[in-house]
Every structure is written in C-alpha cells, then in structure tokens.
Simulated scan of single mutants.
Amino acid sequence: MAEAEGVVLRCEGLTKRFGELVAVDDLGFSIREGETYGLLGPNGAGKTTAISMIAGIMARDAGEILLDGEPLTAGSVALKAKIGYVPQQLAVYPDLTGRENLRFFARLYGLGRKDAARRVEEVLEVVGLADRAKDLAKNYSGGMQRRLNVGLGLLHRPRLLILDEPTAGVDPQSRNSILDGVARLAAEGMAVLYTTHYMEEAERLCDRVGIIDQGRIRAEGTQRELVALVGEQDRVTLTGDGELEPLTARLAALPEVTGAGTADGRVEVFTHDARALLPRLLHEAEAEGTTVRSVQVVEPDLEAVFLHLTGKALRN
C-alpha cells in the first residue's frame, strides 16, 4: 500500500472541465513523507484547480486522490482532516489578535482546550509571532499576516500541507521566515505541496518539481533531472595565462566533456555535471602548465527548463 511506501499523497488521472475548457487533464503525481513537491506553471495552467480538488473543496470529473493509501471523496471528513490548506487569500480575522485567531481555528479543527492552548503557542513559535501574539492582526505587516495564515494551516498537525503561493507580496524577512519554516516542517516528516511564482523558492525548497501547463504535467523530477531531460548543460569558464589552445584540446578529449572552445583568453567547457568534473579540469590545467586565474561555473536553472517546456516565464 502507498502508506507502507511512505507515500502521503498520490493523484492519478485527475480531470476537471468547465464547459468546453479542460482545466486539468489526466494529472498525476505523488508526494512522500518529508518531501516538498513544487507544482509550477504559468497563470491558467491548472494549478489552483488541481489544488482545490486535492484539498477537497472542488469536485473532480475523473481520477483518484489517495491520502495515506485511502481514497479521498467528498464525504471523507476524517481524511480531509489530515490536510492543511493555506490559500492565496488571507483567512485571518483582523480584529482578533494573533493568538485569538489561532485559538478560534484550533476549536474549529476540534482540538480540545488544553491541546489547543499548547498547540497555539507551538505554532506562534514556528511562524515567528510569539512576541506579537497579543497584537491585533490588522496591526500586523502584510508579511506577518501571511505568516499567521500559514500558522492556521499547521494547527492540527496535518500529514499534508498545501501552500498556494504563501509568500506573495511579503517583505524579504517574512519571506525567509516562511521558507525556513516550510523546510523545518518537511525535515520533521510533513509532506508539502508548494506552488509559487518565484523560481528561486522552488530551487531552494523543493525536492522534486512538476511543471504543469494546459492542465498536464509536462515534466517532473529533481532540478538536475529536469535539466538533463531538456538537454541543458553546465558551462565552466577557465581564465588563464599563455597559450590556451593546447589546454582546450586536452579538456575536449575528456569523456565527461561534451564540448570545449577558446575565446578571449578563456576556455569554455560544457559538461553534464560541472561540480563533479571541476577538480579534474583544474588538474588537467596544471598538468598542461596553464595557470588558472579564475573559474566560473554556470548551471542551468529551473527557469531555463520552464521556458523550454512551456515557452513562457513563470509569472506570465
């Protein structure tokens, strides 16, 4: 069963239509315990619709959602309680304090009085609002309100935490606080489904990424796997003294090198794993008698992969 394999969420064949529009088309992916899975796509790609179905707030036309190996249906009240959902829209009450907001939602989740009191204080620490717990939410900065919003989704200790663009419009300090908090939760074993319009967040947080466009997963894997999938390569630029052509020929002969050239006092080398190859390149330069003055390594990022697969920037 999926639960024995450590899989918290498995989606298979998810489909949703709005009239003639197929918003989500045969979508499938899985998330394991302690894994942060990034669902990335341009606006209109189907991310929000997919998340709404997974969270149980929108009916699906076809497909199956398994949570800890059990089918999630409209009547799966106990199973839905294993999900923490943090939407883009703020769900906080401005005229309540941070602590009061958390207490209110804790009771909605059905936590007992003592457990709720303990859990509220734990969550305040997790989202970095313990020192502002007595302040009204309307007096919080936008970033602090976002952090409180995330805290609401954590109160009941969910197995799966769904975060839909949790850092949109927040200040850098709050953004880093949210990202650090998500990383800690995943390290403690929580499965996280994360959407964002910031590619650097996906690169920093996500163990695997699914790139969705026109309702379908176009590619899925780790950053390195996705880069390899579209044929992008690392580029190493060595700047050195003297004649560089002999060094270029020497490096081009290495089996790990897919291409090498000389231009403007630099040697450029292309390879699929620059970090692993770099010590060998420097060793060969020394053997050739070339003094290397500087080294630059450029690795393809998710943005390059995303543009290749969708033809759009992430924020389009």
Rank of each mutant, 00 (worst) to 15 (best):
242 G>S: 04
47 K>W: 10
166 P>C: 04
227 V>Y: 00
294 S>F: 01
279 P>N: 06
295 V>D: 07
124 L>C: 05
142 G>R: 03
220 E>Q: 08
112 G>H: 15
153 G>M: 00
261 G>R: 05
233 Q>P: 06
50 A>Y: 01
312 K>H: 13
283 H>M: 10
304 A>T: 10
294 S>K: 00
43 N>P: 03
50 A>M: 06
268 E>I: 15
114 K>Q: 07
289 G>W: 00
131 D>S: 06
283 H>Y: 06
247 L>K: 09
300 P>W: 08
94 P>G: 04
107 R>T: 09
65 I>H: 00
291 T>E: 09
267 V>T: 04
227 V>P: 10
176 N>F: 09
37 Y>S: 11
36 T>Q: 01
15 T>S: 03
292 V>F: 02
55 A>D: 00
296 Q>G: 13
258 T>K: 02
221 G>D: 11
244 L>P: 14
204 R>V: 15
194 Y>I: 08
263 A>Y: 02
112 G>E: 13
245 E>N: 03
54 I>V: 11
209 V>I: 08
189 G>P: 13
93 Y>P: 03
261 G>V: 11
8 V>D: 03
219 A>G: 12
138 K>D: 09
283 H>T: 11
84 G>H: 00
167 T>M: 05
301 D>C: 14
293 R>Y: 07
237 T>E: 12
146 R>E: 08
138 K>E: 07
107 R>D: 09
262 T>I: 11
15 T>C: 03
25 D>R: 08
180 D>Y: 07
199 M>L: 06
229 L>P: 08
265 G>M: 08
76 S>Y: 01
140 Y>C: 11
113 R>C: 10
314 L>Y: 03
18 F>K: 05
195 T>N: 01
95 D>I: 04
305 V>D: 08
135 D>E: 14
107 R>P: 12
238 L>R: 01
103 R>F: 13
187 A>K: 05
236 V>Q: 15
222 T>W: 02
74 A>V: 09
1 M>R: 06
279 P>F: 05
151 G>N: 09
139 N>S: 08
276 A>K: 14
122 E>T: 07
16 K>Y: 02
77 V>D: 13
272 H>C: 10
15 T>W: 02
78 A>M: 09
120 V>H: 00
26 D>V: 11
184 R>V: 13
151 G>T: 09
119 R>D: 07
55 A>G: 01
83 I>A: 01
274 A>L: 07
49 T>D: 02
1 M>Q: 13
246 P>L: 04
305 V>N: 11
50 A>P: 13
